[in-house]
């Protein structure tokens, strides 16, 4: 079988088609949000939201089993969306109130989220095994309904993230100036938090809640090695996200390896290689005066003598 046949076979599998579409959308959307998070120095926020979303998954499961829904996890994704959005807004409020207690509050939320999820899934009549597919992703089980959720939310995240990028940049870059410009700073901060929460829930199926943050942050880390501007960083990170997601997924088609972990390991490998090679790839800038238009206003007394050109006594041994 030729390589082309293999590609055709891969693309003609409906399961693979769904998985690829989900991977592309998540790979494109997650780094867009990640760029804002890195700029706000909240690179770990995605992790925090992911932990809280686990409680939402279990809560959805619990409500589903009470209502007698079949399958029981019908409400898992909506539950995750609600918990993630609420969690992200709480994190943002904690950040706004003051930084000193912020990381402690985040830590409490991390642990509370995981513990709550494990506890609630037991009450719902499930086991921890039911949570594994949410923690580490199960892109091969993406159903058509899941896909529509993913498409809708990814389009929303990309539209808001790209459409309002100047405003979100302004708020993330210099909050004080944004306030002094009358921008709705709190609303925009909440918007960043909310689209981060939505991204977490759509990426949950692809890479899993524990690895979501990697897909948001690692492509940004790669992009900022090369990009000069914020806009370029965002674009390049999005491209990197799509490429590693597709590559990781395609690898798992032939090899029996977990897709979520493969995508993340791939992204980290790309970072390691590019970060190592980057000093070699970049052309060394010619040394030049950074302020050619500026007079050198520092005079060293030793350098200037009244009687003309500089003459230094020869060093004696």
């Amino acid at each position: 079988m030729t390589a082309w046949d293999q590609v055709v076979e891969l693309l003609s599998s409906p399961l693979m088609q769904r998985a690829l579409l989900a991977a592309i959308l998540v790979g494109a959307a997650a780094p867009v949000v990640g760029t804002f998070l890195v700029q706000r120095r909240m690179a770990l926020m995605g992790d925090g939201i992911g932990h809280v979303a686990l409680t939402g998954v279990a809560l959805g499961w619990l409500v589903g089993s009470w209502a007698g829904l079949v399958p029981q996890d019908t409400l898992a994704l909506p539950g995750a969306v609600v918990a993630a959005v609420v969690g992200s807004i709480v994190i943002e409020l904690v950040r706004e109130r003051g930084r000193t207690s912020g990381d402690l509050a985040l830590a409490l939320m991390f642990y509370g989220g995981i513990a709550g999820g494990v506890l609630l899934i037991k009450l719902a009549g499930g086991t921890n095994a039911n949570l594994i597919s949410y923690l580490f992703g199960s892109i091969s089980t993406v159903s058509s309904a899941d896909l529509w959720w993913t498409v809708g939310l990814a389009v929303l995240v990309l539209t808001l993230g790209v459409g309002l990028r100047t405003a979100l940049f302004a708020v993330s870059h210099d909050e004080e100036f944004a306030r002094a410009s009358g921008l709705p700073v709190r609303l925009l901060s909440m918007l960043v938090a909310t689209i981060a929460a939505l991204t977490v829930t759509i990426a949950m199926r692809v890479v899993g809640l524990l690895l979501v943050s990697a897909l948001m942050i690692v492509p940004v880390a790669i992009a900022q090695l090369f990009a000069r501007s914020f806009g370029r960083t965002m674009m390049l990170a999005s491209v990197v996200g799509v490429v590693v997601s597709i590559a990781g997924l395609v690898l798992t088609y032939w090899q029996d390896i977990p897709p979520g972990a493969t995508i993340v390991v791939l992204a980290i490998l790309v970072y390691a290689v590019t970060a190592t090679l980057q000093p070699l790839l970049r052309r060394p800038a010619p040394p030049r005066d950074p302020h050619p238009d500026m007079v050198d206003d520092v005079l060293l007394v030793d350098d200037v003598t009244d009687d003309g050109p500089l003459s230094r006594p020869a060093p004696t041994a």
Partner: peptide, 22 residues
């Protein structure tokens, strides 16, 4: 912060104010 920004991007952000978000 970690993400680079050009002078042009910083100055452009000055064009937003009040309810002008784009």
């Amino acid at each position: 912060a970690g993400v680079p920004a050009t002078a042009y991007e910083v100055v452009s952000s000055g064009l937003l104010h009040g309810r002008t978000l784009r």
